[in-house]
């Protein structure tokens, strides 16, 4: 479970990204964060992955206060999460296989087992035949799917995605959204920030709207 307990986040220069926000995300839930640009959606996701620390309040992930976590513990928290960013952040000088393999290499998985898991993840996102391709040769949608494969290869129980379909055309966006919904159906807690909540709302997602760092609904 993820809990935001009276969380505020102020950036230097006076920008208040989140103000006294309290929110609970249950295990296995599909949560869609909606709101205008600058509403605080990305900040909220960053707080879960300890990419930012709250200025006030507590962020608990499975009972761990990530804001007060020792720096040496943060990598292990991130390994337990699947992160998909707006920019796919792929390594363009590595093959698709190597990109997806990266989280497993980082967590020192045995190579033979890791290779199998990479292939399963690529199959899951429909890119099994592209494992030797370089990301630059793939379309935007395919690149985002590689990023999703990389996020799920460690079999995370929580998947966080920040505007994963922002730069994709509607067809690709629907394809990616279907993929995320399938992960949720498999029991993964899914937290998505998106401008287009229609991709998820009809499928049992809880919609949470932010405006100017405050929870509206």
């Amino acid at each position: 479970m993820i809990e935001f307990d009276h969380v505020s986040k102020h950036y230097p220069g006076g920008n208040e990204a989140l103000t006294n926000l309290s929110l609970e995300i249950r295990h296995g839930e599909l949560l869609v964060l909606a709101g205008h640009s600058g509403a605080g959606k990305s900040t909220l996701l960053k707080l879960i992955a300890a990419l930012e620390a709250p200025t006030a309040g507590r962020v608990l992930v499975n009972g761990l206060d990530v804001g007060r976590m020792r720096r040496s513990q943060v990598p292990y928290l991130r390994r337990s999460l699947g992160l998909v960013m707006q920019e796919h952040r792929l390594l363009m000088d590595r093959t698709v296989f190597d990109n997806v393999m990266l989280p497993l290499t980082i967590s020192s998985q045995p190579p033979s087992d890791a290779a199998k898991r990479v292939r399963v993840a690529l199959e899951r996102v429909g890119l099994a035949e592209f494992e030797n391709a370089m990301p630059i040769t793939l379309s935007g949608g395919e690149q985002q799917r590689v990023a999703i494969a990389r996020a799920i290869v460690n079999r995370p129980s929580i998947l966080i995605a920040d505007e994963p379909t922002a730069h994709l055309d509607p067809a690709y966006a629907r394809e990616i959204a279907a993929l995320f919904r399938s992960f949720h159906a498999a029991g993964v807690t899914l937290i998505l920030a998106t401008h287009d909540d229609t991709l998820y709302s009809p499928y049992g997602a809880r919609r949470v709207e932010l405006a100017h760092g405050k929870l509206l609904s």
């Binding site: 992955a49 990419l51 720096r71 040496s72 990598p75 292990y76 928290l77 991130r78 390994r79 992160l83 960013m85 952040r89 792929l90 390594l91 990266l102 989280p103 980082i106 967590s107 990389r150 460690n154």
Partner: peptide, 16 residues
Amino acid sequence: RQEISVKLLLGATRNY
């Protein structure tokens, strides 16, 4: 730096 940032994002330790 891009590769380093991706690795840190995916849970690489500073030592890694």
